[in-house]
Design a protein around this nucleic acid. Structure first.
Lengths: 143, 143
DNA sequence: ATAAATGATTGTACCATACAACTAAGTAAT
DNA sequence: ATTACTTAGTTGTATGGTACAATCATTTAT
């Protein structure tokens, strides 16, 4: 692999990640972790902590606590699994969807602002390359 | 701005950031935060906590603690400023450089593995777009 | 029926970060 | 020069994100 590109990517990724994490900490009432959890629930539908943790590549204990907080805030509901007394299904509520979309809108606005002067090609390519990167990590590692 | 690209980018950035942060937590003896601090010291040369915090866009207290830990590990040295009894210069040590490079090598290896099947164009473009994104955030926000 | 496995929670620990209070040293104003 | 203001740095406290280990309750397998 081309060393120059490698160095550039290495350098820029670390700056990029720093910026995104520090900038997008909280939008509205949600932390970023909560947003990601809600998004997963929204797309996947009712699901237990174990599977949720697998999807998010987090430890069950982490997800269990985050989910508990979201139940508290009434953004998700915890429904006992009728076929298995140990397990539950978490389900996003109307209010949860609203908050999730609120957060997303804020991200959209911010991104649109940052990328406003990019050409359509650059924007499209940026999205595709990020997607490709993520897909490869998914394939190649245990993600 | 094109909505489709925006949605894609929004989605993929959050996955991307998650993955990078969870994957690259620690390489060798360094945390990622330590690596970034060392890199800054390495490139910038001797500098106090205040400026360091500005460069890294972190609170002084955060940097102060991270720096103290690195002094402890002997990866950096704390030198009193002869012209100002309040302030110090932090300076990376030989051993600090070694660790920093160790960390970087591990990141390189990992990245090279992930990107091995990308064309040279894709690699180059990916680096450039990340760089461009970072530069714009820098211009447009108080970063 | 007892042992093993499983879903979930809780205890504990660590890192990253910020804000506020504080200390010590420098600078400015009277 | 003495007093008040400012500044560099550290430390106290709080929050969030995460993991590992222990535990609890229930289900499955022997």
């Amino acid at each position: 692999m081309d060393d120059e590109s490698l160095e550039l990517i290495e350098q820029e990724i670390s700056v990029f990640v720093r910026r995104v994490t520090l900038t997008e900490k909280r939008f509205g009432n949600l932390e970023r972790s909560a947003y990601i959890l809600l998004r997963e629930l929204y797309h996947h539908g009712p699901i237990g902590v174990k599977k949720l943790a697998e999807q998010l590549h987090l430890d069950m204990s982490t997800v269990s606590r985050q989910a508990a907080a979201l139940v508290q805030s009434q953004y998700i509901e915890k429904i006992p699994n009728p076929n298995d007394g140990r397990s539950y299904f978490y389900q996003i509520t109307t209010s949860g969807i609203k908050e999730m979309e609120e957060y997303r809108q804020q991200r959209y606005r911010y991104l649109a602002y940052i990328l406003e002067d990019w050409s359509a090609e650059e924007q499209a390519y940026f999205g595709k390359l990020l997607q490709k990167y993520n897909a490869i990590v998914h394939e190649k590692t245990d993600w």
